[in-house]
Amino acid sequence: MAIQSVFILNKAGGLIYHTDRYNSKNDVEKTFGYPLDIVLKEDDKLTVIFGERDGIKVGFSLLAVNGEELSNKQLPNGTDALDFLKDPNNYPVSLKFGRIKLKTNEKIMFASMFHTLFAISTKLSPEQKSSGIQVLETESFKLHCYQTATGVKFLVLTDPKQGPMDNFLKRFHELYTDYALKNPFYSLEMPIRCELFDTNLQKTMEQVERATTQYSNE
């Protein structure tokens, strides 16, 4: 899938709209003997910090023990998952690891983080009158950003091989003006909750996707 997610930031850096389109399931379930050969770090969740094997990567979180989902690092019966794993009597144990999806709060945080990065990139420019970040490239994705004259930012996360997304971003802006701004129940700078906008955006994204897949098949 070419488009992974889209975001709209208001001019203060607040996240006012986001959708995700990826639901790749790359959770890994394995049976382990004692002692555990994976090092887990404890913060608000249990994360793998050392010992990649069988598709379990650094950065994955422990999702379930013996098929029982963890909630807040605890097993359904209330025992702490880390204490459970320290006891040799509980082995062999089957553990499920995967990536925890970004929570809404984290998304809001990343939106404002991008807002500052955008501003700093202008400041550090070696050439005069530079805009902020337009495309950010990494090995696993590409982030395209379009800032309107009023300071609203449209962000699209795509595949690293995706070409320019200018047309899509312009179209995205058009949809925003048509369906979000003209909605009498929408107050400016506030999160967008508008069904018509959602459906039309989904439609446009599907169109773009079809166009790009055709292109890559040729």
Binding site: S5, Y22, N26, S130, L136, E137, E139, F141, L157
Partner: peptide
């Protein structure tokens, strides 16, 4: 933010000037 796992290093960014 990366949707997939593994090597996720930052390569470059561009603005309209540099």
């Amino acid at each position: 933010l990366s949707p997939i796992d593994g090597k996720n290093s930052f390569i470059s960014y561009r603005t309209n000037k540099y």
